[in-house]
């Protein structure tokens, strides 16, 4: 995507396969790391690690959005983000519930991820075969997106509930209505980056940095929710971590925006003879 103007200096775009592996593996490991830290120490202070794990999913999702939407889907970028989160909600609830029913509680994350990527792939197939989109990467794009949506919802749900148990997540995230915040803020983190940066000089690194930046803001929002569900210490820590992520990536994003901005040359007023 190095068409058009913009200053040089953007690094080579990362391979989508690499981002997929980093995104999925990173978020799964992150959520389990958060869960292990919480259960080993017997506190809920490490719940913020779940929010950081969600950021891996966000990067994967933002990259999938920019790949699919670069073809033009005709309905605007937000629709695909909402689709990702819609699939994510269904998949994460199903995964957690089924794991609990089968007696393998903590494997819910894996079940949710497997279900969501299969479902995403099927939706991609439908879009190409039935609706005739003819976007060659539609299947893998929606594979990534629905996986990313699921991991974002699970990660931030963990950040609010501090537990992977189905009953806790339903009690703290669904019954309180905080899921709506995850839905919209998480959806923004996935859909907003490409929506904000699209254009002929859209650069992968700038888009993804923007995604993590919005993810940091979503972490602040879940931190405020966590003040109510996890208590003051865990909630405040999450807000501070979210703010740190937001600030770091905001500065980085600002730098990249300046790098890619076109130089404006002042030519002065029109000469009097032209008036």
């Amino acid at each position: 995507m190095t068409v058009g103007g913009g200053a040089a200096g953007a690094p080579q775009a990362l391979d989508p396969k690499k981002i997929r592996i980093y995104g999925l593996v990173g978020s799964v490991i992150g959520i389990y790391l958060a869960w292990i830290l919480n259960s080993v120490t017997g506190t809920n202070i490490f719940s913020f690690v779940g929010a950081l794990a969600a950021l891996f999913g966000v990067v994967l999702g933002a990259n999938a959005v920019r790949r699919v939407c670069a073809y033009g889907i005709g309905t605007g970028v937000p629709s695909i983000g909402m689709l990702a989160l819609g699939m994510g909600v269904v998949a994460s609830l199903f995964g957690l519930n089924l794991a609990e029913q089968l007696g393998v509680g903590v494997l819910g994350v894996i079940i949710a991820l497997v279900y969501s990527v299969v479902f995403g792939y099927v939706i991609g197939l439908i879009a190409n075969r039935v609706m005739g989109f003819n976007i060659p990467i539609m299947e893998e794009g929606l594979f990534d997106l629905s996986g990313a949506g699921t991991m974002a919802i699970l990660g931030w749900s963990f950040a609010i509930s501090g537990s992977l148990a189905y009953a806790d997540i339903v009690k703290d995230v669904f019954n309180t209505g905080f899921l709506a915040i995850i839905f919209i803020c998480g959806g923004l983190a996935i859909l907003h980056p490409f929506n904000a940066n699209l254009g002929p000089d859209e650069k992968q690194d700038r888009t993804l940095v923007n995604g993590v930046m919005v993810g940091g803001m979503a972490t602040i929002a879940t931190g405020i929710c966590a003040l109510m569900t996890l208590g003051f210490a865990a909630g405040m820590l999450e807000i501070v971590v979210g703010f740190a992520v937001w600030y770091y990536f905001y500065v980085w994003y600002f730098r990249l925006a300046k790098r890619d901005a076109s130089a404006v040359v002042g030519t002065g007023l029109l000469p009097p003879s032209a008036l």
Binding site: I73, G74, T75, S79, I80, M82, L83, L85, G86, M87, G88, V89, V90, L93, I123, I126, A127, M131, F133, F174, L179, A180, F183
Partner: peptide
């Protein structure tokens, strides 16, 4: 929430 999830998927498919 679950209904909203199903709703979103169908609405987006139809709008595509």
């Amino acid at each position: 929430v679950f209904a909203v999830g199903i709703f979103m998927v169908d609405a987006v498919l139809a709008s595509w």
